[in-house]
Computed example of a mutant assay.
Amino acid sequence: MVDKNIYIVQGEISTVVGAIKRNSRWNTHTPLDEEQDPLLNSFGHLKEILNNIKELSDVEPNVFLRPFLEVVRSEDTTGPITGLALTSVNKFLSYGLIGKKSAIERQSPVPSGGPPWDLISDKICTVVNDWHQIIS
């Protein structure tokens, strides 16, 4: 049985990718263009990963966060698309998908210099909260 959290991430992928494709910049893209577009390609790669796992905890949070954060950092996306990506990250935080220990971390201790997931989660929360204050 597939973890329901995978469906949450897949739904957010569909939402953000749909908005990107409806944007005028990407409106004339062909499937070949989509393979070459870094944002769409990143989401496509994430879809492949999610289709090959049974539990979201089988991958590190940065794997499913990366495409959404790339949208936030991109100068090519509009404010509404950036807002959708931030809303997705906020949803991941609200549902507890970020900040949980991954399968790898549960099996072995994190060596010094390893990823401080609690600190990363706190920083993401800060960014999302700041964004909500800006749009309110």
Rank of each mutant, 00 (worst) to 15 (best):
V2E: 15
V2K: 15
D3G: 00
D3H: 01
D3Y: 00
D3F: 02
D3T: 00
Y7Q: 14
I8H: 09
V9I: 12
V9L: 01
E12N: 13
I13Q: 05
I13S: 08
S14C: 09
S14H: 08
T15I: 09
V16Y: 01
V16R: 00
V16I: 02
V16W: 03
V16P: 01
A19E: 09
A19K: 10
K21S: 07
K21C: 10
R22Y: 04
R22C: 06
R22H: 09
S24H: 06
S24P: 01
R25W: 07
W26I: 09
T30L: 03
L32F: 10
D33V: 01
E35F: 06
Q36I: 07
Q36L: 14
Q36C: 12
D37H: 04
P38T: 09
L40N: 03
L40Q: 08
F43S: 03
G44Y: 10
H45R: 11
H45W: 06
L46H: 04
E48R: 08
E48T: 09
I49E: 03
N51T: 08
N52A: 10
I53E: 03
I53S: 03
E55L: 14
L56K: 05
L56R: 03
S57Y: 05
E60Q: 09
N62V: 11
F64W: 01
F64G: 08
F64K: 00
L65C: 08
L65R: 01
L65A: 03
F68M: 07
F68E: 09
L69G: 02
L69R: 04
V71Y: 05
V71L: 07
V72I: 11
S74C: 01
S74R: 00
S74H: 02
E75I: 07
D76Q: 10
G79P: 01
P80Q: 02
T82M: 12
T82D: 06
G83C: 04
G83T: 05
L84Y: 07
A85E: 05
L86W: 00
S88L: 05
N90G: 15
K91L: 15
K91D: 15
F92S: 12
F92K: 10
F92N: 11
F92M: 12
F92T: 05
F92Q: 07
L93P: 04
L93W: 08
Y95E: 15
Y95Q: 14
G96I: 03
G96W: 02
I98H: 00
G99W: 03
G99K: 02
A103Q: 15
I104G: 08
E105N: 08
E105G: 06
Q107D: 13
V110T: 13
P111E: 06
S112R: 07
G113N: 00
G113F: 00
G114V: 06
G114I: 06
G114Q: 07
P115M: 14
P116G: 02
W117N: 11
W117C: 04
W117D: 13
S121A: 10
S121R: 15
K123R: 13
K123C: 13
K123F: 09
C125E: 15
T126L: 15
V127S: 13
V127T: 12
N129I: 11
N129M: 11
N129S: 14
D130Y: 12
D130M: 14
D130E: 14
W131S: 12
H132K: 15
H132P: 04
I134K: 11
I134Y: 11
I134D: 09
I134N: 11
I135P: 08
I135V: 15
I135D: 11
I135M: 14
